[in-house]
Design a protein around this nucleic acid. Structure first.
Length: 844
RNA sequence: GCCCCUGUGGCGGAACUGGUAGACGCGCUGGAUUCAAAAUCCAGUUCCCGCAAGGGAGUGGGAGUUCGAUUCUCCCCGGGGGCACCA
């Protein structure tokens, strides 16, 4: 008995599919279409287990849908721009373009070794000018319709490297390479008006029924719509006022201070002759811009010395603080503080000894004595200490306060979003150039469409700090498209989310000299099933949803939602190992280490913890099918998956078990295509029914993405068929049915093994071109059901009853069972609950 | 800090819409085969008591609704992730 030769078999079928163009598709209006897309990878150089899982899931769906008669589009490409290429360039002195192309070519080979059913004719790389030229045109079109604008925005600036840092490159307020303090700088940058679509992006979430609820919720929170009011507070002894956004205008009488962001223009202005304030602003800038850092920091501030007038009571003046917990990017960058009803305001008020007057009291509290200590009261209640609002509920008071604001010309209701416009400028080299020219005379001039693409120069070097585009000797020097005088190209490039916001559309007609043809897009889009990591739940998916709307607005597309189905996969985890000194060890190092090794718990596979398993080793040792099976069998796709050696061994054993079972069957199989014999023995008949039940169950599991359950069902059927080896009538026929069914069911999971077995079973047509097995519904019906019998909710026995058995009859049979009679003996039966075909509960 | 996810045997997980908890796999134990091992095959495997028949407990903890709760409600605890220049 020989083991299955995965290496040889997998190469054989990969070549067969390729030479036949088995997965190349074109639009075919006679068939229902199905577009399966997995998030395309960043070409880091080698695939990792997360890719293996992602692409196994996608391939299963693609092959399954193809077997079910769909015209399936299943493409693959490369998200090829990004920071790592520049880091590699600096570290290894390799040009980013070359580094990226080399990586693509080795990763393509790795993906091909997985046997994925891609239409490789549609492969794209986003760093290819034939790709990014189209997004330069899109940007110009967006500019044309007013979806793009320029404004000043803060960045992390590394003064030594002379460059902008990503958040991940700022560690404890210092640059990751230079180690010096990072500064905040204001730069003029391009923004896309995603907020213009905020309401629509939010509302349409409801229609995305095949998206996970949690992703929809995350997007909902990200967009963060809140209804409230703008209030204008007049500044004492000045002509201007401060605009505040609040959702609690009902608590206006409880206001005891005002706070503005450190970056608020007013704070900046006052800092000029207020050193304390200037220091404070510098301090806030060191804290960073992340919400987490701001929210967890101690609430501190500085009195600016200004006062504002309470809009409802001109006698009342509020001090104005600059505070670290007020975000310039949210609302208006200024708040009024109502300590009794907001925890942050309360913390702040206690620190600076500000007044805490409750203006909402719980319904059961005594308004005269109700007070707030160190916990703000944020629930609904009755308004107190609030003049004309007294006695109202919170919603009533909001309405009344809003009306008074309008009447006194000091404010109005408004809707505010947490969502901010999308800043797309990056001060980086390895990205798509932003197609504009800066001219001293004409200002900012878009590059005319016929001059696109603005191609990225590849002859750059990283021997000096800063963006190589900016100090390239010739690249940025051009003539102004408008006046013809010398001008300069914009040296910023797009955020790489720009490329991934429309690649799904490019795949519809990847060879086209347009971004995509409308005809192909209309046929294939939207993506029916998108599959990728949960880490993209908000940004990439939201930007793509916005981009699709923007493209529709510019006439490129007819749809506004790019992905109607979404599946998010969990992470791959693995045990961690450390040596005596606490250094992380690779799994293979741990196995051969001299000294003692400490076994850590299973964590997300990461280079830093070295707990990675290289897919290439696994595939060459066990084959792609084994790796794929393991990816599918243990955990549901959306949960984290623990990589274990015993798990991969188990998958390998099953591959071989199927191989042996079918290549050397214990009973000579009936000829292919024979009709069902009418004398099936009992065992053969039961097994035959099991085949149909399995096909039905697996189909339904695959439809619901319960892949681990589908694998379990197939293994169960394997057990049934393995036990069926007697000389009874019809066994040879049922075994053929069963083997063929199993091969067809595993086709989407282990395509190479399945093709090989299919051929061995005598088929000339490839399994890839074979339809999914049919289910004979009549074989699924059972005529008896095993009914559980409980006494007082405790299981005391079971009984087989005819399906749909009469309740009275069932009760009689149950009570007659000796074990039941014994337990019930001498007790009064108070009630008997009969759930037909399921359970009988005797209450005594 | 805020938001999201998650918790079931030794392990990964299963359980339709509130109805026999632990399917399937891994691991482990015993046996067969073998000179021996690997591989393979057979049997067993939630825990406790019991020779067995059987009994009791049990889905992170605590309460509640119900004839019946892994599933519904409330409170609490543990683990993981996200928070806008990583992709």
């Amino acid at each position: 008995m020989s083991n299955y030769n995965s290496r040889e078999t997998e190469a054989k079928w990969q070549a067969a599919w390729e030479s036949k163009g088995a997965f190349n598709v074109t639009e075919d209006p006679s068939k229902p279409k199905y577009y399966v897309l997995e998030m395309f990878p960043y070409p880091s150089g080698r695939i990792h287990m997360g890719h293996v899982r992602n692409y196994t899931l996608g391939d299963l769906v693609a092959r399954y849908k193809k077997a079910r008669g769909f015209n399936v589009l299943h493409p693959m490409g490369w998200d090829a721009f990004g920071l790592p290429a520049e880091n590699a360039a600096i570290a290894n002195n390799v040009p980013p373009a070359q580094w990226t192309r080399d990586n693509i070519s080795s990763m393509r080979g790795q993906l091909k070794s997985m046997g994925l059913s891609y239409d490789w004719n549609r492969e794209i790389a986003t760093c290819d000018p034939d790709y990014y030229r189209h997004e330069q045109k899109m940007f110009l079109d967006f500019l044309e319709v007013g979806l793009v604008y320029r404004k000043q925005s803060w960045v992390n600036w590394d003064p030594v490297e002379n460059t902008v840092l990503a958040n991940e490159q700022v560690i404890d307020g210092k640059g990751w390479r230079s180690g010096v303090d990072v500064e905040k700088r204001k730069l003029s940058q391009w923004f896309l008006k995603i907020t213009e679509y905020a309401d629509d992006l939010l509302d349409t979430l409801r229609e995305l029924e095949r998206w996970p609820d949690r992703v929809r919720l995350m997007q909902e929170n990200w967009i963060g719509r809140s209804e409230g009011a703008h209030i204008h507070f007049k500044i004492v002894d000045r002509d201007d006022n401060i605009k505040v956004f609040t959702t609690r205008h009902d608590t206006l009488y409880g206001a005891s201070f005002m706070a503005i962001a450190a970056n608020h223009p007013l704070a900046q202005e006052l800092a000029a002759d207020n050193p304390e304030l200037a220091d404070f602003i510098a301090e806030c800038n060191r804290l960073g811009t992340s919400e987490a850092a701001i929210e967890t920091a101690e609430k501190i501030g500085v009195d600016t010395g200004l006062e504002v007038v309470h809009p409802f009571d001109p006698e009342k003046k509020l001090p104005v603080y600059a505070a670290n917990f007020v975000l310039m990017d949210y609302g208006t960058g200024a708040i009024f503080g109502c300590p009794a009803h907001d925890q942050r305001d309360l913390d702040f008020a206690r620190k600076y000894d500000l007044d805490v007057t409750p203006v909402v009291a719980p319904r059961d509290a005594d308004p005269a004595t109700f007070s707030v200590a160190n916990e703000a009261f944020v629930d609904d209640g009755v308004l107190i200490n609030s003049d004309f609002l007294d006695g109202m509920s919170v919603p009533e008071a909001k309405a009344a306060a809003a009306q008074r604001l309008v009447d006194t010309n000091s404010g109005e209701t408004t809707v505010n979003f947490r969502l901010r416009d999308w800043g797309v400028s990056r001060q980086r080299y390895w990205g798509c150039p932003i197609p504009v020219v800066h001219c001293d005379g004409c200002g900012i001039v878009p590059v005319p469409a016929n001059q696109l693409p603005v191609a990225l120069p590849e002859d750059v070097n990283f021997d000096q700090p800063g963006n190589p585009l900016a100090h390239h000797p010739t690249w940025k020097h051009v003539d102004c498209p408008e006046c013809g005088k010398p001008a300069q190209r914009e040296t910023d490039t797009f955020d790489t989310f720009f490329e991934s916001s429309w690649y799904f559309a490019r795949f519809c007609s990847a060879q086209s000299d347009q971004a995509f043809t409308r005809e192909a897009a209309d046929y294939w889009l939207p993506v029916d099933q998108y599959i990728g990591g949960i880490e993209h739940a908000v940004l990439h998916l939201l930007y793509s949803r916005f981009f699709t709307r923007a493209l529709k607005q510019c006439g490129y597309l007819g749809i506004k939602e790019p992905f109607v189905g979404l599946m998010t996969q969990g992470m791959i985890c693995h045990e961690t190992y450390r040596d005596d000194a606490g250094n992380w060890l690779l799994p293979e190092e741990a196995a051969t280490a001299d000294g003692p090794v400490t076994l850590g718990r299973s964590e997300k596979m990461s280079k830093s913890k070295k707990n990675v398993v290289d897919p290439e080793n696994i595939i060459s040792e066990y084959g792609a099918d084994t790796a794929r099976l393991f990816m599918l069998s243990d955990s549901p796709p959306d949960r984290d998956l623990d990589w274990t050696d015993s798990g991969i061994d188990g998958a390998w054993r099953y591959v071989n078990r199927l191989w042996r079972m079918m290549s050397e069957p214990k009973v000579a199989l009936a000829a292919s295509g024979n009709v069902r014999p009418d004398n099936l023995s009992g065992a053969a008949d039961t097994a035959y029914r099991a085949i149909h039940k399995t096909v039905a169950a697996v189909s339904s599991d695959l439809d619901k993405f319960h892949f681990n359950k589908a694998v379990a069902r197939i293994r169960e059927l394997t057990n049934v068929l393995d036990a069926l080896d007697g000389p009874e009538a019809g066994v040879d026929w049922v075994l053929r049915q069963g083997y063929e069914a199993i091969v067809m069911l595993i086709g989407p999971m282990m395509p190479h093994l399945a093709e090989e077995l299919w051929q061995q079973l005598g088929h000339d047509i490839m399994l890839t071109d074979t339809a999914w097995p049919e289910v004979d519904e009549t074989l699924l019906v059972e005529d008896t059901a095993t009914v559980a019998i409980q006494v007082n909710g405790k299981l005391r026995g079971t009984v087989d009853l005819p399906k749909g058995c009469d309740a009275k009859e069932a009760e009689k049979i149950a009570l007659a069972i000796p074990r039941i009679a014994e337990v019930v003996e001498g007790r009064e039966i108070r009630k008997v609950i009969v759930v037909p075909d399921r359970i009988i509960n005797v209450v005594i």
